[in-house]
Structure formats: structure tokens, C-alpha cells
């Protein structure tokens, strides 16, 4: 056990799987000696060398393509796209190649690769470095999409992603990366958290809050304040993986509380939580005693100025206020 940040937990996961399995290699921009734009791969180049920690030119399309091609021929690549926004430059290789190969080949190929990338706003990086694109990935059949909220989960989910035989988009929140506030005790050695299983991060009886990634942390904070100030008991569900989606954990919770709020950082329009709400309507309408609602970002690019960025992205206060307004209407 050691107290690790989110970034350190992912690095440890990479290091441990690479020590075990010669077929695993890293590929990406400035990930070698430099250790990656956020320093996540720092030290791995020294340990595993240039063959297995492969620096590339600025060529997103072929970085992803190389991962796809090597994955279907016997390797287990882990690739880094510095910011999730840059996946745009390699989107064909993701959505038309990685995602569809197994199906198109009639089930005769496997694509065991992990695409790691930094997601989300809140760090002042402006419109091209701050988007939350998970809904786009989750929409494409063939991809799995993981969004860890804390170091312990990040490591366990990452190891599962590496050993999964499908292309996994692993979305790492850049605000969580180095945050000491969210550092956690993380066990040494290999352990896995299954993809497609959510977790109740805080049990409660009054209302169900479903969240992903950084929004889980913000929701937990809002829940603590509400408990202290208003004796409101929120149940916080961390989906951890959005595809596959653990809708059962949501339904079980809503059955108990009768109320559902979904919190996501992406723009609300076409956001992933629309899917969660739709499935709850289809499978758990009778459990609800209030309309399910979503808390999400406004529908605009992520602005640079921190004043506007803070206004856009759901904050602890905003989450708390919406919970109160849902409860007060009932």
C-alpha cells in the first residue's frame, strides 16, 4: 500500500503490467525520456527502454492505427493521446477501424488495446484542450469507455482495460491527475476492477446521484455538506465504466430512493447521462417519484477564462442546489 495520486496509480498499473507481460508496450508523443505531457509515464522509459516506450512524431492517426494493427497481430498496446481533443485527428482509426474490426471480421480478430487520454476542463486549457467527449466514444459499438474517479479505481480499472480483448478508451481527468486532495491508499501489485461494474461510493436513502470521473468527487462533497447542514442522505453511484453500463446498480438505487440526479461534466445536449435517464425510464419508471434530472455543462465550447469555465462546469454548489430543489419539490 502506498498513498498515490491518480496519475501515480495509473503509472504503477502500467509499470506492473509491463513487468509481467512482454507484449505490452507504450506508444505516444513525448512519453519517453520526457515522461509525457503530464509526467504520467515518467520513469518508464528508463525501466523499459525505447523499444517498449515508443516516442512518436505528432501523428495521432498512425499512433492509434499502430495500436490497432499491433493489437490484432498479437501485442497489447497502450497508447497515449495527450489530450482527448486530439483524438479528432485520429478518429477514423478509432471509430472505423479499432471499433469495428472484430465485427467486420466475423468475430475472427481481437483488438486488445487501451487508448489513454486526458479529459475534461477546469484547468484553463481553453477550447481545444478541455472537452469531455465520452458520449461520442460510448455511442460507437465496439468500444469500451472507462472514466475512473479516484486512484484506487484508476489502477484496478486500468489493469482490467489492459487485459480486456477490446479497444478501451480510458479517460483520465486532468484535474484529478496530481491532486493530493484525492490521493488514496493503493495496493501494490496487480488487482482488477471489472469493466462494466459501478460502485456505490456513498450509501444513502434520500436520493440517488449518478456520476462519473471528477463529478463523483464533487457529488461526494455536495453530499457531505447536505448531510451536515440538512440531514439529507444522498446515495452516490460511480459508474466507473460508461460502456458497458451498469444500469442495474442505478435501478437498485432508484428503487430505494425514488429520485435520480445524473451528474456529468460534458455538455448536456446529447450527453451520456441522457442514456442513463432513458434506460431508467424504460426499466424503472415505476420506481421514480420525481422526474429524473441531469446536471451537466452548458452547451458551448469550454472557454479559456476561468470565470467562464467555472460557470460552465457543474460545481459542488450547483450540484448541492439542484439536489435541494429536487427534494423540495417533493
Amino acid at each position: 500500500m502506498s498513498n498515490l495520486t491518480y496519475l501515480e496509480a495509473i503509472r504503477e498499473a502500467i509499470q506492473e503490467v509491463m513487468q509481467k507481460d512482454e507484449n505490452i508496450f507504450l506508444i505516444g508523443e513525448d512519453i519517453g525520456l520526457y515522461g509525457g505531457s503530464f509526467g504520467l509515464t515518467s520513469g518508464l522509459f528508463a525501466e523499459f527502454g525505447a523499444e517498449r516506450v515508443r516516442d512518436t512524431p505528432i501523428s495521432e492517426s498512425v499512433i492509434i492505427g499502430t495500436a490497432v494493427g499491433s493489437a490484432i497481430t498479437g501485442m497489447r498496446p497502450i497508447l497515449e493521446i495527450m489530450f482527448s481533443d486530439f483524438t479528432g485527428c485520429g478518429m477514423d482509426q478509432i471509430m472505423n477501424q479499432a471499433a469495428k474490426i472484430r465485427y467486420m471480421f466475423g468475430g475472427k480478430a481481437k483488438v486488445p488495446m487501451v487508448l489513454r487520454t486526458a479529459t475534461g476542463g477546469g484547468a484553463g486549457f481553453g477550447p481545444h484542450h478541455s472537452q469531455s467527449l465520452e458520449a461520442i466514444f460510448a455511442h460507437i459499438p465496439g468500444l469500451k469507455v472507462v472514466m475512473p474517479s479516484c486512484p484506487y479505481d484508476a489502477k484496478g480499472l486500468f489493469i482490467s482495460a489492459v487485459y480486456d480483448n477490446n479497444p478501451v478508451i480510458f479517460l483520465e481527468h486532468k484535474v484529478l491527475y496530481k491532486s493530493k486532495k484525492y490521493a488514496q491508499e493503493v495496493p501494490k501489485g496487480i488487482y482488477t476492477i471489472p469493466l462494466g461494474k459501478g460502485e456505490i461510493k456513498r450509501p444513502g436513502k434520500d436520493i440517488s446521484i449518478v456520476a462519473t470521473s471528477y463529478m463523483v468527487q464533487k457529488s461526494l462533497e455536495a453530499a457531505e455538506i447536505l448531510q451536515k447542514d440538512k440531514q439529507i442522505d444522498c446515495e452516490i453511484i460511480d459508474l466507473r465504466t460508461i460502456k458497458p453500463l451498469d444500469i442495474d446498480i442505478v435501478l437498485e438505487s432508484v428503487k430505494k430512493t425514488g429520485k435520480l440526479i445524473c451528474v456529468e461534466e460534458a455538455c448536456s445536449f446529447g450527453g451520456f447521462m441522457g442514456e442513463v435517464v432513458a434506460q431508467v425510464m424504460e426499466k424503472g419508471f415505476d420506481y421514480l417519484d420525481a422526474p429524473a434530472i441531469r446536471i451537466a455543462s452548458s452547451n458551448n465550447p469550454v472557454p479559456y477564462s476561468h470565470i467562464l469555465e467555472e460557470e460552465m462546469i457543474p460545481s459542488v454548489d450547483k450540484i448541492k442546489d439542484r439536489i435541494l430543489s429536487v427534494l423540495s419539490k417533493n
Partner: peptide, 10 residues
Amino acid sequence: YCKGKGGSMH
């Protein structure tokens, strides 16, 4: 220049 929406890179 961009009303604070773009920043250095825009």
C-alpha cells in the same frame, strides 16, 4: 481579442 473565450492558443 476573443472575449476571454479563446486564450493564448486561439
